[in-house]
Amino acid sequence: MTSTVRPFDAVLTDLDGVIRLFDHSELNRLERAAGLPAGHTMRTAFHPDLRGPLLLGQLGKAEWQARIAERLAAESVTTPEPTTAPESATTPEPATPAELAAAFTSAPFRADPTVVSLLRAVREHVPVVVVTNATAWLDADLAAMEQLTGVADAVVNSAEVGAVKPEERIYRIAAERAQVAPERCLFVDDTAGNVAAARALGMTGVDYREPADLRNALAHLLN
């Protein structure tokens, strides 16, 4: 006889890296032109001095962008001297710290349609709650992604609740929003430390790498 007992009663899912995907191709181009390693601007943007205030809602977007630029400038972000080229050749001016910061903070993003489809389907069976370390302007970002309308029952944003993954409190808040005990939650995240913290509370954890990971975790309810 096939069991009809659910393996979990709610899905708690990360946003960035799972549902929302950023396009940093323009930033990558600017970094290459500046002779910077890929991801340099992002690492600067999430330096502990900036990351904490940002994810607790203490930095607005303009201030964050300005502080990224200041930090990049302090690191002496410059382009190596160009190699000798014909006099007729022109070399574009390297991006300034302010331009790098703007390219990062204004990078376009989209929702992964496969993940959205899976979450819509599972929401017909159990509550879905987004649990994200995000910014004070997250609501505006979500509103810009019309595909996400009706995907989740609630959004738990670190900038609003004052707790950041992997702190225990944000997981408990998410479980409360789902009206489910922590041990009856499935937790999906692309950061191993966040998943480990969820498992420590008794949640079923999914180390997310691709939509197939989510599909497999939801198979019991969707098949």
Rank of each mutant, 00 (worst) to 15 (best):
A111E: 01
Y171N: 09
L50S: 04
A192C: 12
F104A: 03
P94H: 01
E210K: 10
E99A: 07
G60E: 08
V206Y: 04
M1S: 14
H24S: 13
L222P: 07
A98F: 15
L119Y: 03
A111N: 02
R29V: 12
T135F: 07
L119N: 01
V131I: 06
L148N: 02
V151Y: 01
P37Q: 04
A144S: 09
R199P: 10
G57M: 10
V77N: 04
E183L: 01
T149W: 13
A102M: 14
V151A: 04
Q179H: 15
M42P: 10
R209V: 14
D23W: 05
A111S: 04
L118T: 08
R169I: 01
T204D: 09
S88Q: 12
K61A: 15
P166G: 02
D112H: 01
A198P: 03
T44Y: 04
A98C: 12
V156G: 08
A152G: 07
V77K: 02
A74W: 08
L118P: 06
G35H: 07
S3Q: 13
K165R: 07
P166A: 03
T79N: 13
A178Y: 00
P48E: 08
E81Y: 14
S3Y: 10
D23Q: 06
G35Q: 04
P92R: 00
G52D: 11
D141N: 14
P53H: 01
A136P: 09
T78A: 13
T114H: 07
E167L: 02
A212N: 08
R29E: 12
A196Q: 05
T114I: 11
T90N: 07
T105Q: 07
L55Q: 14
D207M: 06
T114V: 13
M145D: 14
D190Y: 04
V155A: 05
V116E: 07
Q147F: 03
